[in-house]
């Protein structure tokens, strides 16, 4: 059986620097995969390459999403096909109302799937329901997208967008960082409510704490552009205990990854 997402030997660089150095990953429908790894190891790069950000050049490898060549598609088509990325640093779009933005997004997605545009009343009703899911403040709906939102509000807004757009593959890039304990719980509950047998998650995080709430099926450790270890949810606990240095020596063929003084 082929996976929902299949990544094979993916290499990517930015401004001529190779960041991803051969990634292999298969995600089946309904699975939750977590990616952990030190700062600068390439986690966000992987997320952005999957979402289609232009600045990143794929130099080798393939990615298929539900059997289709993902790398061939424009970013908006990837989104319409069902790939969603919650940004590590969501941007502000001054003057554009959050609701207005979401309605445009949802209707673009619906159109792509051959569905009718949703009218304003139907849309608002649906949106209200989704807001409850992430306990979002109604005030944030009418404000411009992310403008002046606190760090935590921005993260919550990302999950809210995800809930509205109902994607098939959800990539969460450090959605937990910057959240207080209560917010973390709310966001995790929202994600868990969205878990379904035909929806998969790729959760990037630095903290095992999040994985207590969103329990992953697999954990992968990314060091210097490669997965150096994959395992079950226990791997996250082990990592927390031992730190990344425990695994850094395992990144092969890279002098900087050797323990200092070895």
């Amino acid at each position: 059986m082929t996976g929902m997402l299949e990544i094979k030997n993916l290499h990517a660089s930015v401004d001529g620097n190779e960041i991803l150095k051969g990634i292999d990953l298969t995600i089946q429908p309904g699975e939750v995969h977590a990616i952990m790894g030190p700062n600068g190891s390439g986690k966000s790069t992987l997320a952005r390459v999957l979402a289609g950000q232009e600045a990143y050049e794929v130099t080798a490898g393939q990615v298929t999403f539900e059997g289709k060549d993902l790398l061939e598609m424009d970013p908006e088509d990837r989104a319409r096909e069902g790939v969603f990325m919650a940004f590590q640093y969501p941007v502000e779009i001054p003057g554009v109302g959050n609701t207005y933005f979401l309605k445009a997004a949802l209707n673009a997605v619906r159109k792509h799937r051959g569905l009718q545009e949703m009218d304003a009343i139907e849309f608002l009703k649906m949106v209200r329901g989704k807001m409850k899911l992430v306990q979002m403040d109604e005030g944030l709906l009418n404000r411009p997208v992310n403008e002046g939102f606190s760090g935590g509000e921005k993260k919550r807004n990302e999950i809210f967008h995800m809930a509205v757009l109902e994607p098939r593959l959800c990539i969460l890039d450090e959605t937990d960082s910057g959240l207080d304990i209560d917010a973390l719980r709310i966001v995790a509950d929202g994600v868990n409510a969205l878990r379904a047998k035909d929806r998969s998650f790729l959760v990037i995080t630095h903290y095992q704490r999040l994985l207590n709430y969103i329990v992953p099926d697999y954990v992968h450790v990314l060091v210097d552009g490669r997965f150096v270890r994959s395992g079950g949810k226990e791997l996250a606990l082990e990592l927390e205990e031992k730190g990344y240095s425990w695994l850094e020596g395992m990144a092969p063929e890279h002098p900087a990854a050797q323990p200092v003084g070895a």
Partner: peptide
């Protein structure tokens, strides 16, 4: 960011300008 939500570049520009 707009593209990632399914909005085309053209629509994104006009949305941002209108804002």
């Amino acid at each position: 960011y707009c593209n990632q939500r399914g909005i085309s570049t053209e629509d994104a520009v006009s949305m941002i300008v209108n804002g």
